[in-house]
Amino acid sequence: MSETKIIDFHCHLARWGRHRIDDLIDRYLRIMDLSGVDLACVNCIFFGNASIGNDIVASVVKETPDRFVPVAFVTPHYQNDVIGELERCFDELEAKFLKIYPTYYQHPVDDPGYEKIFKWCSDNKKTIMSHSSETFETNRPTLVDRYSNLADKFPGISWVMAHGATGDRRSIDEITEAVNKVPKLYVETAGSLDTFEGFETLVSNVGAKKILFGSDMPLFDARNQIARIITSKITEKEKKQILGENTIELLGLKNAEK
């Protein structure tokens, strides 16, 4: 396994001035090198017209295919466009999974507005990464109920809860229950805060196989984010699973194995 690449599951492209996010690819690659990341899974969620963002992803991947993995984005704001864009992203642009962003839709991940998208992804056995809950939600279902229902309705989908693996004390129990009860549910590590020993507790609770390293770069620096795993008190084998092995297996990235 020591030959397996390190893969960052959660990265964005394009500019976002409010958060000082630029689109300098040379700097992106330098930070990846300094943090030890071999491959970054990149999406672009900043455009109301999803195809503009997906084109940016395709263009960056085309320039540097050995460092970037394309990720699709669609928005239920444009119901008539989503299937065509999904087909374009996965068939032509070779996206490896779908990122959705319920925050922009102002409805949670299990809102009926996503059904058309999820049905296509289930039929085509795709992986979807999303926030698992939103601050605007009131009286939301528990995560185990939410993802059990989604898994029942859309059995072909593998789900990744973005920011689910920080070990944050406020959510760790609920996340543990959901990941342990829903078979194809994973958690990703990016986040601004954590809780001392929370990450180790989560690894112990759900097992390293359900956890994927992600940084949310360039919002967060990949060096800071990868340190959550590197400096934690888990085994080297578990670190390697989280840093690359699990993503390679989930996405079938056979060419990522050296």
Binding site: G36, D194, F196, F199, N224, Q225, I230, T231, S232
Partner: peptide, 18 residues
């Protein structure tokens, strides 16, 4: 920010900054 945060995260990061 210990103990709410881990000591290692930013320490590792500054060590990887050349």
């Amino acid at each position: 920010g210990f103990p709410e945060n881990n000591i290692g995260r930013q320490l590792y990061s500054v060590h990887q900054s050349e």
